[in-house]
Design a binder for these strands. Structure first.
Lengths: 318, 318
DNA sequence: CATCTTATGCTCAAGGAGAGTATAAATGGC
DNA sequence: GCCATTTATACTCTCCTTGAGCATAAGATG
């Protein structure tokens, strides 16, 4: 007992570090998924964790509200990062980043805050496949990835690298998997195709379009997008992003905005309705082109069940 | 810009805290899912994080090997906890717990280590439904939960509480959902039915069977079990727990041990085989009752694909 | 050889998912 | 008012998956 138990208790001694909380705060407006940013769009809202707060979430909420004037609604933890060499500024004191995903209805940012919504595809243009795969993927990215794969030391490694590229980016006739946001980002990083990679290892030439961010914030954002894309398929979280009343098409557009791909309209409605997630308000959409649509509201009553039992969204092509 | 940017940068200043790494290390032997423990089975392997390590995972591996003599294989991060009032000893310096799930083939613990494998159902007896729902659930737990629900201030709250109980524990003819491990633990905690709750709020009478653990280690364990139960259904992680050669029944028993419920044998085989996750070794199981079974090995070749494309396991009744 | 136990092959029915057709209800231009 | 256009909504059809059960094979044991 002696040895291990003592080591366990050693946690009470020194070894102080600092921990930052980082928020990926998402909203959707008119088919654009937005994230809250500070510092001119180059960083996510964040701040140090202190034990004056009761919990991590409490601390996060306080920080985000202070920085953006925007209250947090739905929140879930994403991941805790601490790798060295990813900080951008390697002389800075080491710190852990505890990241969270938050969902809100979009709102104007209050006066006096240097916080802005930015479309997340500004940071990940290769992730938007609603109008088909972006042309620059095949034209520019794929060849660079192939070159990177070829640059591996052995033929076996070359093949493995290329297989990885093909799977994550849906090349060689594979399907595009919209959930692999983080894997794609990490791959581009490894291949040195984004500015963040150069910062850390001295390489140059950002080759792939897309706005970079401070430190590893873009990686955290990728983690958040991936989580959200996975989650909307089996939990009714989209509704956190919707106004209180909406048409089924608006709901569909929001899902498509998040997923970065289109959905079969009729099947989408079938699924939503048969799961009894929504109910008609009785009202009908005004200000509309074409036949006006019924307005729906989310049935909060099902939350207890569905939050646990699950939900399904159809996510296919066309 | 001034205001928010300064706040962000404040992270570089003081606010030091400590962070512990905690491991849920899982193995399976003969239909028993085991976890590695220290301190006589009352704690999970853990230790402080220091920045001398390159990453969180590196630090975790070092700690676990030092405490248990057991090297870590597959590892994934679980969750970062920091709620106050869950520490068991509220005068201890506050600390963050970063928890990980590790999978390994079971092995003897080396000499000189106070580490032991314990079946995880010792800590969560209500989670094992392989022989049907444990009798004490309906006989003892359900009435206590109903009493707790009734003790809510308003009729609405009473109904909500009971609905929550019924959903998470599969009462009132609902299906048992084996993934809700954490929710069930939290519910029992809230209802004051487990010793850990008494430690924190002065209540008494542990009423539900199951071994408690130090601090919030049992909560972390619940998180790990829940994650693993969810994950085996769509990622080929079970194989991390299997010996290099195994029969399909052994594989099935391992899945059942983890899921805590039985599986339809023929359908299980159908799924495993059609996904090409395994291949015959050519050998045949000896030391067997009944017709001898073919031995299989995991096809590592599919890892790259399946790690991403997903896998399916049938988890039903009977 | 009868019986027990496990392995393995096959069939069937119900439900779900992907995709397409058809019709309804608005708007704007002429 | 009529037509083209746009969106909403109702159905249908087919294929695949999943849950479940039946039947047979191949060993061990007494």
């Amino acid at each position: 007992m002696a040895r291990s138990a003592q080591k366990t208790r050693a946690s009470a001694s020194g070894n102080a570090i600092t921990a930052d909380l980082v928020a990926v705060l998402v909203a959707v407006s008119d088919g654009v998924p937005d994230i809250m940013t500070i510092a001119g769009g180059s960083a996510l809202p964040s701040g140090p964790f202190e034990f004056t707060h009761r919990s991590l979430q409490t601390a996060l909420r306080a920080w985000v509200e202070a920085q953006t004037g925007h209250p947090l609604g739905y929140v879930e933890q994403l991941y805790t990062f601490a790798d060295r060499g990813r900080s951008g500024d390697s002389k800075a004191p080491h710190s852990i980043s505890i990241s969270y995903l938050g969902l809100t209805r979009e709102d104007k940012v209050g006066e006096g805050f240097e916080a802005h919504w930015h479309g997340w595809y500004e940071y990940f243009p290769w992730e938007d496949h609603r109008a088909g795969a972006p042309a620059f993927l095949a034209k520019a990215v794929a060849p660079k990835l192939r070159a990177w794969a070829k640059s591996a030391p052995s033929p076996t490694l070359q093949r493995e690298r290329w297989q990885r590229c093909a799977i994550t980016f849906g090349l060689d006739d594979r399907d595009w998997n919209e959930e692999l946001v983080l894997q794609r980002y990490e791959l581009l990083y490894e291949a040195g195709l984004i500015p963040e990679a150069g910062r850390d290892n001295g390489r140059d030439a950002p080759i792939v379009p897309g706005k970079p961010m401070t430190a590893d914030h873009r990686r955290i954002l990728a983690t958040g997008i991936a989580r959200l894309r996975a989650k909307i398929k089996y939990r009714p979280v989209v509704f956190e992003l919707m106004p209180s009343e909406f048409t089924l098409l608006q709901l569909q557009r929001s899902v498509e905005a998040l997923a970065g791909r289109l959905v079969h309209k009729q099947n989408f409605r079938r699924l939503i309705e048969q799961q009894e997630l929504v109910e008609e308000t009785g009202a009908i959409a005004t200000d509309t082109v074409g036949r006006p649509a019924k307005l729906f509201r989310f049935r909060h009553a099902v939350l207890a069940e569905r939050a646990v039992a699950g939900t399904k969204l159809p996510l296919s092509r066309t």
